[in-house]
Design a protein around this nucleic acid. Sequence first.
RNA 1: GGCUCCAUCGUCUAGUGGCCUAGGACACCAGAUUCUCAAUCUGGUAACACCGGUUCGACUCCGGUUGGAGCUACCA
Length: 427
Amino acid sequence: MVNDNMNKVKVRYGPSPTGIPHVGNIRTALFNYLFAKNQKGQFLLRIEDTDQNRLVPDAVEKIKDSLTLLNLNWDEQIIYQSKRLDLYKKSLEILISKKLAYQDEGATRFKIKTDKNSIGWEDAVHGHIEFPTNVLEDFIIMKSDGFPTYHFASVVDDHDLEITHVMRGDEWISSTPKHLLLYEALGWQPPKFVHMPPILGPDKNKLSKRHGAKSVHEFIDEGYLPEAIINFMAFLGWSPQDNQEIFSLDELSKVFSLDRINKNTPIFNIEKLDWFNKEWIKKMSDDALSHEINKDFPEFNVTQIKDILPLVKDRIGKVTEFKNIANLFFEKPNLQANKKEIAIKIEIFTKIINSLKKLNPWGASDISTAVNKIMEEEQLTKSQMYKSLGIAISGQLITPPIFPSMEKLGKEETIDRLKTAHKVLQK
RNA sequence: GGCUCCAUCGUCUAGUGGCCUAGGACACCAGAUUCUCAAUCUGGUAACACCGGUUCGACUCCGGUUGGAGCUACCA
């Protein structure tokens, strides 16, 4: 009879609370999450806090935030290795009784004892990996402060929690033989190993703060949507079978598979993230996007934002850019900055103002007709005319469509702004 | 130094011996379109690190070279 529970996939994300996790770390969490969901298994969060010297007070909170901001929800409660010392002690005693562990200056070392001359495993992404055993040295499993090292704690925990797949960074490849020996010594079946390449910076070095080694929080503060961050990270080292690029977290869970994880190290490319973000802004409903924008700009209310969103949506690449583009609807323009770019004469301003004054009703197409008429009479180019009007009503170089913006602003306000521009030009 | 991993356009990648004159995406360039700018559409430039082997046939398999990365801690 097959025990269902035995086959159920169970993975863990095991950060050490030594700081705020950057996107490289979070991608490891994402892949663990996606695999668990894909397999209808479980995704555990285990805090690997066995190094008492490097603990950072707020780190666990930051780790939890980073995951929840992206909707990467873990199953069950968080596991703290520091609270499971008894468990390691029990396994340690087994090793001692088998004479496979011995004291060394207050610490305990594991004795490498094997008659094989190589030790290997089938890695889910790298295929067969094999190490000669003669390069292995007795290593410390229990430190003199009574805490286990990573090697020991992770092996004991993974077995105790019935982890089926250890998904972690490539940097653990060379210590996997040690782990395998530990499993053997304790008489346990090792899990499947899935080693994922690290993300590199554009300089092909380790991801630095300057490039992408930022926390999820920082990216969101800069105006990136969680959906875009997830989508981007998923494509760093993994690809789907077809050419689809835009995936939600749910969609990713459906198609994710281990055998499509790449072996080589991807480079963090912010331009691609920007593109994913633009796509997600386009894809998002006005309602949802308005709420996102509202988080960044609490001074505007959601209704206001939603009202003008259709005019500006195409022009914003990041949520934080909303204000730059939409500012004309909230504040009087600062004309000084781009005054020099106004390409039409004062007399023409007067003509436009007089013509617009007569307009009734006030609508974008009527404004357009009136303005275009003057444009032809004065033999102005569209570029000259529209650019000048855009600056006059917004003070900005990049503006929403001008006539609909004027309509939204209202007749009085528009004419008022044109008059102000007129005055500024006279000086 | 030793051990291990990795190697396709600038970047993310598809490719599992003939479908490859190497496909898609970002970025870049050009054209079209639009109500300025942005957006959009169409097109274009651009890669199998190198050398041997295996094979009728290699981007794909094997060996080597070069280059990059990781480990070699009482850190994870």
